[in-house]
Design a protein around this nucleic acid. Structure first.
Lengths: 224, 224
DNA sequence: CTCGTTTTGTTCTCCCGTTCACAAACTCCT
DNA sequence: AGGAGTTTGTGAACGGGAGAACAAAACGAG
């Protein structure tokens, strides 16, 4: 008995999902500028994408625009926020309070976009005295109780690479089903758990590849 | 003269380029464990990808394996590093020494993977006293001379969103052709300049979307 | 030397995502 | 009211990447 799609259980392509937050930010920016209505062309420019792609992306959510007019900024902003799920607040735990963990804990963009850091955990007892971003750094041993008490489903891993897998295992066991991994390692998790990774040095290496080709390309084509 | 060089199998797909650093890391990890030879199956498992995809990716670089045997870990590691361009050291400047800039400056993964932070810049004069990761925080006004003196082609932006575009403009004008942007904003740059963005809250929002659907999907309307 | 085993490199097919192009729908002006 | 001008939403073509399947090459045993 597969249930009937109640409201919006239609499948939105993954590529579109990844762009929705960009549109959301662009709309917020437009709203801050006092814009109340915008065309797909304007919004696309603001989000840095092609307007046809933008319209197709939005069409997966429904018909929230008006032909001949455009989109109501505030209305569309709310619809996208609802689709993503950031109209509610998501509790988040951060594990690993080194340099990066500090930065993440202090990042104001989380709070303003629907996420609330409920706990900072670190395995090193020496850090348990610290107060970072108004929160005590607590023992990693408290993970299970914190997850249970706050209904946490999203965890952030900012530990060294060697610790990442065991932290992920504990998170999954504690009931977390979405992990954002900053450690430079491949995590293996059971089905049903989502992992997204952010790897700083990989991004730089991709840039280096293109950079290298820029400097080589002009000279090599000269076939005499 | 140039036709014979085996170093450049041109036209490597972008998706493959993005995975090469992952393979590089997996190979380094295998080498650290004392492994000298590995099959595509082993390496693929270590990198978290399908083995057919791995072999196809490597085939764009050349034939560096031995049929019936596998790949020599050290040899393949070097070949990938050379293809990416991280056998040489890339000088990098970081602009914006807030929480995130601190974390980036102290990130050891850059140095160990072919990148050298040559300068830390910030617009705020109050920060110019600080020493971060062994480097003085210098004035943003020094950008042009630093880029010129060190032949910098890669810049990292870790400023607030409002400052990011003007920093990018100055970087481009100074001769930087690759930018890694951590500021939550869309940068516009001229052709020939590569930009990659890392957006922490976007990643969390993508997770939130899937998380929201998890909680809705299984129990949706079990209509009797 | 020959045969069987292993594993790579490559070809082929399918699928997803991007882009184009246009009909439908709405507003505004006369 | 009607026609001209806009702008959305979408069907269809197109290109690129993922995965399966297989042929080619190396090695070892007998």
């Amino acid at each position: 008995m597969t249930a009937r799609t109640p409201d919006s259980a239609r499948d939105i392509p993954e590529a579109t999902v990844a762009r929705l937050p960009v549109y959301l930010r662009a709309l917020t920016s437009l709203a801050d500028d006092g814009t109340t209505t915008c065309s797909s062309e304007e919004l696309a420019a603001s989000a840095g994408v092609n307007s046809a792609k933008l319209r197709k992306d939005l069409s997966y959510l429904g018909s929230y625009g008006t032909r001949g007019v455009g989109y109501d900024v505030e209305y569309l902003r709310y619809q996208i926020a609802r689709e993503i799920g950031v109209t509610q607040d998501w509790p988040v735990v951060i594990v690993g309070i080194g340099n990066l963990g500090h930065a993440l804990a202090n990042y104001s963009g989380f709070r303003s976009r629907g996420f609330r850091v409920v706990a900072l955990l670190d395995a090193d007892p020496d850090r348990h005295d610290e107060v970072v971003a108004g929160l005590d750094v607590r023992s990693f041993e408290d993970l299970e109780s914190i997850v249970a008490d706050n209904a946490v489903s999203i965890g952030v891993i900012a530990t060294p690479a060697v610790a990442a897998q065991s932290v992920a295992d504990r998170m999954v066991a504690a009931g977390i089903t979405s992990i954002l991994n900053f450690a430079p390692t491949v995590l293996s998790v059971p089905d049903g758990v989502d992992v997204r990774k952010v790897d700083l040095s990989i991004e730089l290496q991709i840039l280096a590849y293109h950079e290298q080709r820029k400097s080589v390309a002009p000279g090599t084509e000269v076939v005499s």
